[in-house]
Computed example of a mutant assay.
Amino acid sequence: MKNPSLTLPLVLIVAGAIWFLKTTDILPATAVLMAVGLGVAGAVVLLIDGINKQSVIAGPMLMYIGAAIYVRSEYLLGYSPLIALGMMLLGGLMLLSRSDLVPHKRSKIQPPAAK
């Protein structure tokens, strides 16, 4: 006899816990959770990848998008100024990534050892 999968019980437990926390107002608003998640993802990109030409754009932009979602939901600031500020930030980060001060991403493949 085949063992039943754990997927359905785990999904039910997680969904029930999230529903319970949401209905009792223990869990913060979805926008706040998304903002925190994006901010953490941006920091993780910078920590794991290090500072290189790709991460110097991706990390800060993820953090900015998280901050923009939070500001939009909590302070009801319009989309237009947030998008304009994001465009300026992205342009500045793109200029920074073109600088020789920011290294290229190192490849994970090791060159063969010399004999």
Score class of each variant (00 low, 15 high):
I13D: 02
A29I: 00
P60M: 05
M61Q: 09
A58P: 00
I65L: 14
T30R: 15
S97Y: 02
D49Q: 11
P28K: 12
Q110A: 13
S55Q: 03
A35N: 07
Y79W: 15
G42L: 07
L27D: 03
L6W: 11
A113D: 13
A114G: 10
I48T: 13
T30F: 15
A84N: 04
I18H: 10
M1R: 11
A43H: 06
P60V: 05
L89P: 02
Y79T: 05
V71K: 04
A35E: 02
P103F: 05
M1T: 07
L90N: 03
A84L: 14
G92M: 10
M87N: 02
A43E: 05
L6A: 12
A35H: 03
L6V: 04
K53R: 15
G42M: 03
S107G: 11
P81W: 04
I18V: 15
R72G: 02
A35L: 04
P28Q: 10
A68E: 01
S99H: 11
T24C: 01
A35K: 04
P9A: 11
N3Q: 06
G66R: 07
L46A: 12
M61D: 02
S5G: 03
H104Q: 12
G39C: 11
M63A: 15
R106S: 09
K53C: 01
S99W: 05
Y70G: 03
G50N: 01
I13F: 15
S55K: 08
Q54V: 10
P81K: 08
K105L: 00
L27M: 14
I26E: 06
T30Q: 14
R106H: 09
L85V: 08
L89H: 09
T7K: 12
Y70K: 09
S107A: 10
L85R: 03
A68P: 04
M34E: 06
G91V: 04
L77S: 02
F20R: 09
P103V: 01
G86T: 07
L6I: 06
A67W: 03
L76Y: 15
